[in-house]
Amino acid sequence: MEKKDTLSSCSDSEIQQMQLIQDKTKESCMVSFQRLHSHLKRLSNNDLKGSRTEDGFKRAFTTLFCQDLETFTGTMFLNMDQLQKQLDNNEFQEIGSMASFKVLETQFQMFIKSKIYLNDEYIVMTRNYFLEYTRLDIPEFRDTLIQNMDYVKKSIEKRALHKMEYDSRVNERLMQTTEEKVDSSKALDASLVIIESNGTESQKQDTSSRSGNDAHVIIVVKSFTLIINPQNIF
């Protein structure tokens, strides 16, 4: 029993360590998400609302993303909210998290794959407005976007891996606990059998003793009967 207790203690310690790792991977996941979120907020600069720069950026944005700024960013923030809910959930689900990430990633595919970095006059104006509004040049914004999305994706995959390992260890611990309970139950049953067996022997001895006394009394009574029987007198 002492050996089993030691094993149980070690298993519990391992699970606690894995839980700490789970917490750290969640924290890392949220840090990656916040970096991506901060980067994408550059596409919605409230400080420049109604300015000439914003008007120029809206035209540049439509050229780059083939969609108007309000519609695109409105959908973008909704997708970001869905991804954040998935990542911030303690009951982490890899499928839901990755699905939400893919939706956001797909929204930017046209921009990521576009080759609109040529040096003709119109593109130069587009790049200038983009730089003035976001404080980043188009290639730099694109490369940082790809990098941050890659961080989020890898953090989701890493978190999913640790969760799978954690769930596996918890299941093993539950099975071990169940086996220990079964062993304890068997040991208890065996003890009860021994007690019951000893009790039965005692009862037999008591019965035998009482039977002997009863027989003796009967014999005494019979002897007495024989003495006073009238047939024997005559």
Rank of each mutant, 00 (worst) to 15 (best):
Thr53Pro: 01
Lys24Asn: 14
Leu48Arg: 01
Phe33Ser: 00
Met98Gln: 10
Ser100Glu: 01
Leu192Tyr: 14
Lys102His: 12
Lys41Ile: 03
Val193His: 08
Lys58Gly: 09
Gly199Thr: 06
Arg173Thr: 04
Arg169Met: 13
Thr6Val: 10
Met80Tyr: 01
Asp47Thr: 06
Lys41Pro: 01
Asp206Lys: 06
Gln67Cys: 08
Phe130Asp: 01
Leu78Phe: 10
Gln203Gly: 07
Phe72Asn: 01
Lys41His: 15
Lys186Cys: 09
Ser211Glu: 14
Gln205Arg: 08
Ser97Glu: 00
Arg135Met: 11
Leu43Tyr: 12
Asn171Lys: 09
Thr177Ser: 13
Asp206Phe: 08
Cys29Trp: 00
Arg210His: 15
Thr144Ser: 08
Ser168Gly: 04
Thr25Asn: 02
Val152Tyr: 00
Lys58Ser: 15
Arg35Val: 02
Lys26Gln: 00
Lys186Asn: 13
Leu7Gln: 15
Ser209Asp: 15
Gln203Pro: 02
Phe33Gln: 01
Gln67Lys: 09
Ile146Val: 13
Cys66Gly: 11
Ala190Met: 12
Arg42Val: 07
Leu69Asp: 02
Leu69Met: 10
Thr75Ile: 04
Ile146Gly: 05
Lys41Trp: 14
Met76Trp: 08
Glu14Ala: 05
Val217Pro: 01
Lys153Cys: 13
Pro139Gln: 07
Asn232Gln: 10
Gln22Trp: 00
Glu140Leu: 06
Leu161Arg: 11
Ala99Met: 04
Leu104Glu: 01
Thr63His: 13
Thr200Ala: 08
Ile95Gly: 03
Leu145Ser: 03
Asp23Gln: 05
Leu161Asp: 15
Leu87Ser: 00
Ile156Glu: 00
Met30Tyr: 01
Val124Cys: 10
Asp137Pro: 03
Arg210Val: 10
Glu27Phe: 03
Leu7Glu: 15
Gln19Lys: 05
Val103Ile: 13
His216Met: 10
Ala187Trp: 12
Leu188Lys: 11
Ile227Asn: 14
Ser184Trp: 11
Gln84Leu: 08
Gly56Ser: 11
Leu20Met: 10
Leu87Glu: 00
Val221Pro: 05
Val220Tyr: 04
Arg210Ile: 06
Val31His: 10
Asp206Asn: 06
Glu172Ile: 07
Asp150Ala: 08
Ile15Trp: 01
Glu121Ser: 08
Gly50Trp: 02
Gln34Leu: 06
Ser13Lys: 09
Asp5Gln: 09
Glu165Tyr: 09
Tyr151Trp: 12
Met149Val: 05
Phe224Lys: 03
Thr106Ile: 02
Ser97Ile: 00
Glu2Arg: 03
Glu157Ile: 06
Ser32Met: 06
Glu27Asp: 05
Asn229Pro: 08
Lys26Trp: 00
Arg127Ala: 15
Asp143Val: 04
Gly56Pro: 02
Asp88Thr: 00
Lys204Asp: 15
Ile138Gly: 02
Leu87Trp: 00
Glu54Gly: 07
Ser9Gly: 07
Gly199Glu: 12
Asp47Ser: 08
Tyr133Asn: 02
Met18Phe: 10
Asn198His: 14
